[in-house]
Simulated assay, not measured.
Amino acid sequence: MVSRSLLLVGVAFLANAFAATAGGGVGLIQLPLLLFLGLPYPQALATHKVASVALGVGAGGRYRRSGLFNRSLVLLVLASGLPGVLLGALVVLAIPQALIRMVLGALTVGLGLYSWRRHDLGQVAVACHRDPWGLAVGGLGLFVIGVLNGSVTSGTGLFCTLWLVRWFGLDYKSAVAYTLTLVGLVWNAAGAATLGSFGQIRWSWLPWLLAGALTGSYAGAHIAVGSSNRWIKRAFEILTIGVGIRLLV
């Protein structure tokens, strides 16, 4: 019992520290651990979702003092993504997970390679697509990412990070701040509440996961705030390709 508790704390710390630095991907490490320890997929997903809320609490607590947020964009991320999260969480049990993981894995590897080849991507913030048409397309993209976030846990925060960089012109540091605070806290809380209503959460494991997630996410966010966009971009690319390969295999 003690060894399992320490394992949960340690893995949650590492997973959330990496995610808070790179802008997503906590499920790459944390969800496989829950499956390895014997939880069925629906229960592992629900438990992971609840624990992932701590990613937003810990990282958001650090990022909220950074002055990186634009109120209009915050509202767009929430208004567009939350309906998608709720829809994805409602249909998760009816979706063939193996197929979705294969498709998502291939797309995630593609994201990492795309960022790697675009050397100047996300290094300097250049606001774009803030007209009504651009906001509508951006909101649709966030809705689709929200659906994935509610139904498949690994890698969707990374999609949001790159979408904010590529479509809205944020630099990587700002995009990671949005993803960790809004996706990590609000989107994940909505998904956790929906999945939790089905009674799928392993409550006895949550205190250990939450302890590791809170401390790890704050530590990762602290490192990211003090790092350059180039360094964060490389961390994003490494973690994205790692998440994609993990989903494929």
Rank of each mutant, 00 (worst) to 15 (best):
T153E: 12
C160M: 14
A46G: 06
A22D: 00
R202K: 12
G196V: 06
V137W: 14
S154D: 10
K49R: 14
A79I: 14
R101F: 10
V186P: 04
T47K: 03
G24N: 07
V85W: 01
L148C: 12
A59S: 15
G88H: 05
G105H: 03
D171F: 00
A127K: 13
L37N: 05
T21K: 00
L206G: 04
S228Y: 08
L209C: 02
L73P: 01
T153K: 10
G58M: 08
S5V: 13
P207H: 11
G138F: 06
Q200T: 12
G157L: 08
L99V: 15
L209I: 07
L247I: 08
R166M: 12
W205H: 06
R117V: 10
I232N: 02
G110D: 12
A94S: 15
G169R: 06
R202I: 03
V50W: 04
A193T: 11
A15P: 00
G157R: 02
L140T: 14
V53Y: 01
A175R: 01
F168A: 05
F69S: 06
V124T: 15
I95G: 08
T47P: 01
V50A: 09
A235M: 13
V50K: 00
S154Q: 14
S227Q: 12
G169K: 08
A177S: 14
G88F: 01
V85M: 05
L185K: 02
E237Y: 07
G139L: 10
L248F: 09
L111M: 14
A136K: 09
A20N: 10
Y172N: 03
